[in-house]
Design a protein around this nucleic acid. Structure first.
Length: 865
RNA sequence: GCCCGGGUGGCGAAAUUGGUAGACGCAGCGGACUUAAAAUCCGCCGGAGGGUAACCUCCGUGCCGGUUCAAGUCCGGCCCCGGGCACCA
């Protein structure tokens, strides 16, 4: 052991120790409790950012803690390796996406190693490897056979200059990111997986997933968007032909209040009417270019034009005018709605704007209805009864819905229907760097899935990108020209690749058996799954987590696994944020400076008052605290922090500064503090190394020593509780409290015994958080070989027992005294001592004591007036 | 607009879920050690007022009201900040 704490040295030694001993390699042990802890795998973008460090530290802390509880713990790591940035880098650096990706993986893996994360690297996977994507290709062909996969036309962004399809991220302000050309919408055939077949199961299971944050469950519920309603038609005649306008509504009870219909700008009826009407045609054009951001839509002005077409009310036979409305969504339901301005807020504002009639058909109690302004109760579904509705008058919501739906059904003009917002999952991407879609197009046989024996369809990695960014495999006849597996004739491969969400939807399962070479998953999957604890960013709340849940059910129904859900517990960690600094440039733009390059001046209260750029000494503006990002240049490089302070300090700081689900504000001073604490621990161990030799006798302690031991075990109890509820910041503070207590101990045999016990507890509490320094001290002080496998410390309840207890005495709810009472005193005795106190007497005065509340071992409240 | 979070010292945050508000840390101040500095160790540290002092009093958890012996915590109403989103008929 050395006098001076040297993180670089002890950390690399500890890491080598774990590597040579395969400390984190695990196998299935039937009968032993397993724990599968997983952090969302990274995209290999180049280097780790602070968000990764936080995510993976949380995962590693959970992993090491569960291991010390005696469980068989799996924590794997891998790479979400397909994706668009590799193509951009390929064009820019004139290198193959595969080479760029592999070199990034190499570098980032080294970074993960220096942070001391305990991964079972024998299970490492990269989703761009054929032995990985082979199995999702196989599953896709199986789904095709089960009729869960289909092909249909869908719209893509087309760059007319580069002659290539663009991903949404590559469209900037409606223009191609490279060419700058106006992007066109083109319809091409694409592959879909029927996630809607699983919508109900995906929705209903959310109710049972009580270890997921409520926020995430709500977001998924809304995304699936199930509603119960009625779909019905308005007949009309057009060019002498009988047609029907179909709409969907959840408020068919208001059907007698329809005063117009509204269709979306893309609706066939609108397009037809626009042929004869140039004003309408211009309006439809305008609707195409408006903002599509949801928040804008919510506050957007309601606009519309009449089509000049009338339809017939299915029950009254009345003529109803059809309008085009910018508030009608083309993609939901039939792209058309019935409008009941009296009982729908959007319809109301539209009717007011265009002078359309408003007819009240629902009455709630004695509320008074007026067309002057909108009232909340007008649209209160389920309240009130029908009026002005002929034979439906007096009916409640559910009676009216049943009766009206029955009448519509009788006329063959409608029926009840469950509607979802969720759409089928479009998985085709016209990109290169992804898994090829294993389908063959044969002129004779049609679509033929690639047989299992021919899988995987390997993506060629040794390619060159031309400047357009178009997918190279689309220009490689030697790759896509094949013979048909069925008839043997000439055929062509699908040249589109899968959406990268396909790979990230099942990687958690493949880690359980990454070497299975004849099956997607083997029997080991059921030992480890479901994942007990999944950790990642909130940005994946909907898409990734919904697709992974869907995929899990697909794999279950393919007979590969038996569980229903992939992730038992979910933790969404908070953002990492930092101060920003900028200068206003002459052209009105801002240039942002990294906090590393700025010196901040504080006033005597410690408030930041001004900041200067270190390079030129001139002032910069303080821009407020924001999420670490490239655009604000406020990212702190984890590597430079590890180099300066060591991984243990960086890990301790990220755990100590905020609870895991809240945002974490970076502060250099805070990191210094974390580093100072670790040195304080090290110095204690060094200075008292001769005293910490063996456990001593704890049975004969004086008052001071008993207090010290009580403080240690109180902190331990709190820390164990906080580990369970994953509030790691207070775990660190508990360890700090114990160290503070240990510093105050003397050097008698009893003090040495307490020190020995206290330090062994502290090291184990911190073991999961700062593993290197605790590993080293554990061995140097002779506690054992591996703290990693040490058992979690138990609270000694007898150490918590006190001879006398401090009671807080309140008079009328205000603290007036603190008294020491023997621990065995009964309620009456406590009361008596409390009332006898001088200060209590002073405040009770001449008043009569009405009531005395005694909270055992805590507090007495005397009510007097 | 709607749905989640959140609002506590100069700052990051605690408060074992209704029982001493501010633990632990950062910054700051004071002291010890040192020729000196750094490092380290010890102490003080919400505001106002009183006392030589140990201490004492009043105010204080975004704002207003309520429930309770007791509210940072529960209920009702509002104001800010952060994140997300379905104009879904």
């Amino acid at each position: 052991m050395k006098e001076i704490y040297n993180p670089a040295e002890i950390e690399s030694a500890a890491q080598s120790y774990w590597e040579t001993n395969n400390s984190f390699k695990v196998t299935e042990e039937p009968g032993r409790e397993k724990y599968y802890c997983l952090s969302m795998f990274p995209y290999p973008s180049g280097k780790l950012h602070m968000g990764h460090v936080r995510n993976y530290t949380i995962g590693d802390v959970v992993t090491r803690h569960q291991r010390m509880l005696g469980k068989n713990v799996l924590q794997p790591m891998g790479w979400d390796a397909f994706g668009l940035p590799a193509e951009g880098a390929a064009i820019k650096n004139r290198m193959a996406p595969a080479d760029w990706t592999y070199s990034n993986i190499d570098y980032m893996k080294g970074q993960l190693r220096t942070l001391g994360f305990g991964y079972d690297w024998s299970r490492e996977l990269a989703t761009c490897k054929p032995d990985y994507y082979k199995w999702e290709q196989w599953l896709f062909t199986e789904l095709y056979k089960k009729d869960l996969v289909y092909r249909k036309n869908s719209i893509v962004n087309w760059d007319p200059v580069d002659q290539t399809v663009l991903a949404n991220e590559q469209v900037i302000d409606g223009r191609g990111w490279r060419s700058g050309a106006l992007v066109e919408r083109r319809e091409i055939p694409q592959w879909f997986i029927k996630i809607t077949d699983y919508a109900d199961e995906l929705l209903e299971e959310l109710d049972t997933m009580d270890e997921w944050p409520e926020q995430v469950r709500t977001m998924q519920r809304n995304w699936i968007g199930k509603s119960h309603g009625v779909r019905f038609a308005f007949p009309y005649e057009l060019d002498g032909k009988q047609e029907q306008l179909w709409v969907y509504t959840t408020r068919v009870d208001t059907i007698m209040g329809i005063t117009f219909c509204a269709v979306s700008a893309e609706h066939a009826l609108a397009l037809h009417a626009a042929k004869e009407n140039s004003e309408l045609a211009a309006f439809l054009e305008e609707c195409q270019t408006g903002s599509v951001a949801e928040a804008d839509l919510a506050t957007m002005e309601k606009k519309g034009l009449p089509t000049g077409i009338n339809v017939t009310h299915p029950l009254t036979g009345e003529q109803i005018p059809v309008w085009v409305g910018n508030y009608v969504l083309s993609g939901y339901g039939d792209g058309a709605v019935m409008a009941v301005p009296a009982h729908d807020e959007r319809d109301f504002h539209f009717a007011k704007a265009y002078g359309l009639p408003i007819t009240q058909v629902i009455q709630v109690g004695d509320e008074s209805f007026s067309t002057d302004g909108w009232e909340e109760w007008y649209a209160d579904k389920g309240r009130g009864t029908c009026i002005n509705s002929g034979k439906y008058d007096g009916m409640s919501y559910s009676d009216a819905v049943d009766a009206i739906a029955a009448d519509l059904e009788e006329r063959e003009l409608g029926e009840k229907r469950v509607q979802y917002r969720l759409r089928d999952w479009g998985v085709s991407r016209q990109r290169y760097w992804g898994s090829p879609i294993p389908m063959i197009h044969c002129d004779k046989c049609g679509i033929v899935p690639v047989p299992k024996a021919d899988l995987p369809v390997v993506l060629p990695e040794d390619i060159e990108f031309d400047a357009t960014g178009g997918s190279p495999i689309k220009k490689m006849p030697e790759w896509y020209q094949v013979s048909c597996p069925e008839c043997g004739g000439d055929a062509e491969r699908e040249t589109d690749t899968f959406d990268t969400f396909m790979e990230s939807s099942w990687y958690y399962a493949r880690y359980t058996c990454p070497d299975a070479d004849d099956k997607m998953l083997d029997e080991r999957a059921d030992y480890w799954l479901p994942v007990d604890h999944y950790i990642g960013g909130i940005e994946h709340a909907i898409l990734h987590l919904l697709y992974a849940r869907f995929y899990h059910k697909l794999m279950r129904d393919a007979g590969l696994i038996t569980s229903n859900e992939p992730f038992k517990k979910l933790l969404t960690q908070g953002m990492v944020i930092a101060e920003t600094f900028y200068r206003n440039e002459e052209d009105g733009s801002k240039s942002w400076f990294n906090p590393d390059d700025v010196t901040v001046e504080h006033d005597d209260k410690g408030r930041a008052i001004s900041a200067k750029l270190a390079a030129d000494g001139n002032p910069v503006e303080i821009g407020g605290i924001e999420k670490m990002s490239k655009s604000k240049n406020n990212g702190v490089d984890p590597q430079s922090m590890v180099d300066r302070f060591g991984a243990d300090t960086v890990r301790l700081y990220t755990m100590f500064t905020s609870p895991p689900d809240q945002s974490l504000e970076w502060s250099d001073e805070g990191v210094e503090g974390a580093s100072r604490f670790i040195r304080r621990l090290w110095n204690l161990a060094w200075n008292r190394r001769d005293a910490i030799t063996a456990p001593g006798d704890l049975s004969n302690l004086n008052d001071q020593q008993r207090t010290a031991r009580r403080e240690i075990h109180t902190a331990l109890k709190q820390a164990s509780f906080d580990y369970e509820r994953q509030q790691f910041n207070t775990v660190v503070s508990a360890a700090m409290k114990i160290v503070n207590t240990l510093y105050k101990l003397g050097d008698t045999p009893a003090d040495r015994a307490i020190l020995n016990e206290g330090l062994s507890i502290t090291l184990r509490l911190l073991g999961p958080i700062s593993p290197h320094v605790t590993h080293t001290l554990w061995r140097e002080l002779g506690y054992g070989d591996e703290i990693l496998n040490a058992l979690w410390p138990q609270t000694d309840e007898t150490a918590l027992v006190q001879e006398s207890i401090q009671y807080v005495i309140q008079v009328n709810g205000k603290v007036r005294a603190k008294i020491q009472v023997p621990a065995d005193a009964d309620k009456a005795a406590v009361e008596a001592i409390a009332i006898a106190d001088d200060n209590v007497q002073k405040f009770v005065g001449d008043n009569t004591v009405r009531k005395v509340i005694v909270v055992p071992n805590k507090l007495v409240n005397i009510v007097a007036n």
